[in-house]
Simulated scan of single mutants.
Amino acid sequence: MIKVIWTILTLMVAGFAGTAAFVYSGFYNVAATEQHTPPVYWLLQTVMNRSVAVRARDLEVPDLSSDERFDAGLQLYQDHCVQCHGAPGVAPAPFSLSMTPVPPAIVQVGLELSAAEIFWTVKHGVKMTGMPGWSFKLTDEEIWDIAAFVVTAPLLSPSQYYELAEIEPDRPGLVENEGADKTSGDAEMGRVALRQYGCIACHTIEGITGPNAWVGPPLRRISERKYIAGVLPNSRENLVHWIRNPQGIDPLTAMPQLGVTEEHAQDIVAYLYSLGNGER
Rank of each mutant, 00 (worst) to 15 (best):
R191Q: 09
E237K: 06
P104A: 15
G276N: 00
D267V: 07
I118S: 00
H241K: 13
G26Q: 00
S235P: 01
V231W: 06
E176I: 04
L9Q: 02
A53E: 04
H264P: 05
F95W: 12
F119L: 01
A31L: 00
T33H: 07
I2Q: 11
R50E: 13
Q247H: 06
S135Y: 14
K3F: 14
V107T: 15
G259Q: 11
E168N: 11
A254P: 02
G179Y: 08
A53C: 02
E142G: 03
T46K: 07
G73Y: 10
L258P: 03
T139I: 09
A56E: 00
V23L: 06
F16S: 13
E141V: 07
Y197M: 05
L219T: 05
P169T: 07
D186A: 00
Q83N: 13
Y41E: 07
A56T: 04
L59S: 05
R50V: 12
Q83E: 14
F27L: 12
P169Q: 12
Q247T: 05
V126M: 06
G198E: 09
V13F: 01
S157F: 11
L155V: 02
T10I: 09
I118W: 12
S66A: 07
Q45V: 03
A180G: 04
M131N: 10
T209R: 00
H85D: 05
P211N: 02
R244D: 13
L43D: 03
I228N: 01
G230H: 02
H80V: 09
T209D: 00
V231A: 03
F119N: 05
V23M: 05
V4R: 14
F70D: 11
Q247F: 01
T209F: 07
H124R: 11
N245H: 10
L64H: 08
L59Q: 03
L252D: 15
D181S: 11
Q257Y: 13
I143H: 09
V240A: 04
T46D: 14
E262S: 11
L155S: 15
D67W: 10
K3L: 13
I205V: 12
I118E: 01
D170I: 13
H203M: 05
L174C: 00
G73F: 08
D250A: 08
R244Q: 13
L258G: 04
T261C: 05
A153G: 03
L275F: 02
P218M: 05
I118H: 10
G110P: 05
D140T: 03
D145C: 04
Q45D: 15
E60H: 10
P246V: 11
G73N: 07
L156S: 02
M131F: 03
